[in-house]
Amino acid sequence: MGRRKWVGAGLGAGLVAAVGVGLVVAPAGAAAAPVLPPISPEDLVSSVMTAQRGPLAGEVEVDNALGLPAVPGAPQLANGTSTIRVWSGGEGRGRVAIPSPDGERTLVSDGTTRWAYDSQDRTATRSPAGDHQGPPEGAPGQDQDPTTAATQAIATLRQTSTVAVDGTAEVAGRAAYQLVLTPQPTERTLLREVRVAVDAETRLPLQLTVLAQGSAEPALQVGFSEITYGPQDPSLFTFTPPPGTTVRDGQDGGRPDGQQGRPEGERRTVGDGWDTVIVGRAPAREGGEQQQRPEGAPDLSALGTPVSGPWGSGRAITTAVATVIVTDDGRIAAGAVPQQVLTEALAQ
């Protein structure tokens, strides 16, 4: 009898553990695909373009399996999962909190001024909210009819890809359409599929999934894990630097010379569609490079594996979704393609 009791107690304890751990671990997703009326890709894209962006709050989960090499000074780029909290008040107002185990970076925009606050060194950087800071989606197509724009965009995409609305999914508890872009078989790319989940009701893109060749797991998944639509507390979108904070003025914001800032003459593209390769010239690699590199920017010269060919020699950095070759004479070729396509582009 004593033994039976022990077995009972053991079973009970095991049950409690299983239920408890199940409650803790249970992922929110994995629900059955919701049933939604069918929609064409054109209609879906144009509705995304026309949709009103109301206020919302949510958590964005970034699941990174890009296989980027570990870059000192930028641990966020390495593989792993991170959660970002976002609030949007509409009209260009927003707040983003990027937590780290013992600190937080906060970005606040009240529509006219943007603040970036870093709790680690207690600095706040202020910059005017430029045009490029508006919500990235909806920026194009402002001046033309969204339906036409969507049709055109999809027609362009169809030259190199299969565009389809591939069923539905549940993302962050919302029923969503899955817009799927698949490269045509002739495209020589590392990417297998790009999926965008669009909220069926609000037509807000909820999740972006990038799948690479030869892997069932997504190489990159960025999406809401939690989202609530509705008015937000307006105090979220104002920022007053707390006492003891160093306030800096950053005119260009935290955005160093991006793609647009580069003179066009230095860049050319080879190929089109998914196997587009960008060939450019690295910033001067003369002796002064060490001094010119902005503080905090990673040193890339030690990354990658050495490669050489008729085009010269250099270092190849390979990730799950893209390859970059930096040649010794300062040329850079990059694309979502295998290394061979890059070397062909460099040889041209």
């Binding site: 004593g2 009791k5 409690v16």
Partner: peptide
């Protein structure tokens, strides 16, 4: 919340084992 829930599981398990053992 999730860490408190996890702690609760450990708590229930620990208490259950203690009670069963002490009864015997």
């Amino acid at each position: 919340a999730s860490s408190s829930l996890r702690a609760l599981v450990y708590l229930v398990l620990g208490v259950a084992v203690t009670v069963v053992r002490m009864r015997r």
